[in-house]
């Protein structure tokens, strides 16, 4: 039984990790080694004369080439990474700020149709981007927001509000009301109580929420590729656009870029590992 358990875990771990390990290895290969018909996975200092060797000559070239513009592309990987950073960070800040305020409202006040509003907010998460993107596109053409950072920031902020409100409501519900009630009795205004009592108490929740919002903005592809064909192209849209490239797929550079792109996400996953369950279920399961 114990052996069976270990086998299952070992086999699964191998399968789960293989693509990432392969990505890391490929990022140090030359293009020829990356697409050699014989497996090669042991980095070595020099190239082997035998085409069937399991070693490959490790190079850092793919990483230095990330600043270059690939044949057929409009800008370098680093520029697209910059776009992803701007869009991801700004939309995350906005979603957490708006979401925290709304979550506080939903947590502490009673008003007409409160439960319906909450479920309306949740339901917006299920909209397939491709089913709502045309009206947004026409709106953006009129407002001149197509191909801009601001356009995507707005869209990702809204897209993440459902997650931010639901997650933050869970965290704020856990802060005892007595805290701010004492402050209100002391003459704090509602806004001051929110700022000085609730916000400091909700710090962990806001950080966790920010990580989940950042990840979903960072990974988003449907809106990014349909709205921004000419400017402010994020990394997922850029990589996908390389397909069918006349010069062939630059696999080692893609591996290097993709590794840099997913590394922060792996780090964040480690940081929020105790809150993963909560984040992935909109705060429904609290553990």
């Amino acid at each position: 039984m114990k052996l069976a358990r270990r086998l299952v875990i070992g086999a699964y771990l191998f399968a789960a990790m293989l693509p990432l390990v392969w990505m890391a290895l490929s990022s140090f290969k030359t293009r020829d080694d990356a697409i050699r018909p014989h497996p090669n996975f042991v980095p070595a200092a020099t190239a082997s004369a035998d085409p069937r060797a399991i070693t490959f000559e490790a190079t850092l070239e793919n990483y230095t080439e990330l600043a270059d513009v690939h044949v057929g592309a409009q800008a370098s990987f680093l520029e697209h990474l910059g776009n992803s950073l701007i869009v991801g960070l700004c939309s995350t800040l906005a979603a957490v700020a708006l979401g925290t305020a709304a979550a506080y409202g939903f947590s502490r006040f009673e008003f007409a149709g409160k439960k319906d509003w909450l479920f309306f907010i949740l339901s917006t998460r299920f909209m397939p981007p491709l089913a709502v993107v045309v009206p947004v596109l026409i709106m953006y053409r009129t407002l001149d927001l197509q191909g801009t950072h601001l356009g995507l920031i707005l869209l990702y902020t809204v897209f993440n509000l459902s997650l931010a409100v639901w997650l933050m409501k869970g965290f704020i519900d856990e802060i005892p009301r007595a805290f701010e009630e004492a402050a209100l009795v002391d003459g704090y205004s509602r806004l001051a109580a929110f700022r000085r009592i609730i916000l400091p108490e909700a710090r962990t929740g806001m950080a966790v929420t920010a990580v989940f919002c950042l990840i979903s903005a960072w990974n988003e592809y449907g809106f990014a590729m349909t709205l921004n064909a000419s400017g402010a192209i994020t990394v997922p849209a850029y990589f996908a656009g390389l397909q069918g490239n006349i010069a062939g797929m630059p696999w080692p550079q893609i591996a290097a870029g993709a590794l840099i792109f997913v590394a922060p996400i792996v780090l964040f996953t480690v940081l929020v590992r105790r809150h993963l369950l909560r984040g992935m279920t909109f705060g429904t399961i609290k553990q």
Binding site: M17, N219, T269, R273
Partner: peptide, 26 residues
């Protein structure tokens, strides 16, 4: 943590990279 990482990654980027893994020749 290692097991859970794949669900946090970008489907577009990882899907593209899977093309290299699944390629029939190499």
């Amino acid at each position: 943590t290692a097991l859970l990482v794949p669900m946090m990654l970008s489907p577009a980027v990882m899907g593209l990279f899977w093309n290299l893994i699944l390629n029939g020749n190499y």
